[in-house]
């Protein structure tokens, strides 16, 4: 069993994180591009997020924040290091297995929601269950979850009939409906005003604690960091407190 001895602020929530499930990124390096254009997007990154913990990552553009989400979410294979999800290394899996990890244990919330245009809010959630091969009973009840994120009254609306904030709420519910172990959130408030942003991050914090999911949120928005359990900053592919 691995525990991060170098964790800068071991608190009660993080102690023994791996025993309680969660995400562990260990010594991950990632180079992108080839030849002279090679960029070190991630440089020996360590990160430990416990279930139920809400971690924010801030940093300048191009510092490697999205790259970290891609590695943590089994979208990219790192050059070195590993990614443990509830103790299982997902970084070296085949692309087929990676897809299985993603649909069964990882939830993504994208910038501006990235909802499917053809589907109503409720169907976005049902679709996520269908992709994951789960029946409604295996995950959250879609309708109940939609109510929980405050979108019950918009269940029959398609994305183009929703506001940016509403889309983001549906996106969060869609990511959570399959009961993932990890929630990866990339700039969820980029397209929202101050008040809306605060609501969304509050919701993320609440759902993270409620569903006991390990959440990493990348953001440029320093006003919302108060809702996070921990804030890390990334500069040139290096992660620091």
């Amino acid at each position: 069993m691995t525990t991060r001895s170098t964790s800068p602020h071991p608190d009660s929530r993080r102690a023994g994180a791996q025993e309680r499930g969660g995400l562990l990124v260990e010594g991950v390096t990632l180079s992108l591009g080839d030849g002279d254009a090679t960029v070190t997007a991630l440089d020996d990154v360590d990160l430990d997020v416990a279930s139920g913990e809400f971690v924010a990552i801030v940093g300048p553009s191009g510092s490697g924040k999205s790259s970290l989400l891609a590695v943590a979410g089994a979208l990219t294979t790192p050059d070195t290091g590993r990614v443990l999800l509830d103790g299982v290394d997902i970084s070296r899996a085949s692309s087929r297995e990676k897809a299985r990890h993603r649909r069964e244990r990882i939830g993504f919330v994208f910038q501006s929601g990235n909802l499917i245009p053809a589907l109503t809010a409720l169907d976005q959630l049902r679709f996520a269950l269908d992709v994951a091969g789960k029946r409604a009973g295996d995950g959250h009840d879609p309708r109940e979850l939609l109510d929980r994120v405050g979108m019950g009254h918009r269940a029959g609306h398609r994305p183009h009939q929703l506001s940016g904030g509403e889309r983001q709420r549906v996106g969060i519910a869609r990511a959570l409906v399959t009961r993932p172990a990890v929630l990866l959130v990339d700039e969820p408030t980029a397209a929202l005003d101050r008040a809306r942003s605060d609501d969304i991050v509050k919701l993320l914090a609440h759902e993270t604690h409620e569903s006991a999911v390990a959440t990493i949120m990348v953001t440029h928005d320093h006003d919302v960091l108060g809702h996070c359990d921990r804030v890390l900053s990334m500069v040139d592919g290096r992660l620091s407190e």
């Binding site: 897809a99 993504f108 994208f110 990235n114 992709v131």
Partner: peptide, 16 residues
Amino acid sequence: KHELAVVRAMGASTGY
């Protein structure tokens, strides 16, 4: 394309 990328990120197989 973008929608398909999202669905694949959600873990849908290409077969699906």
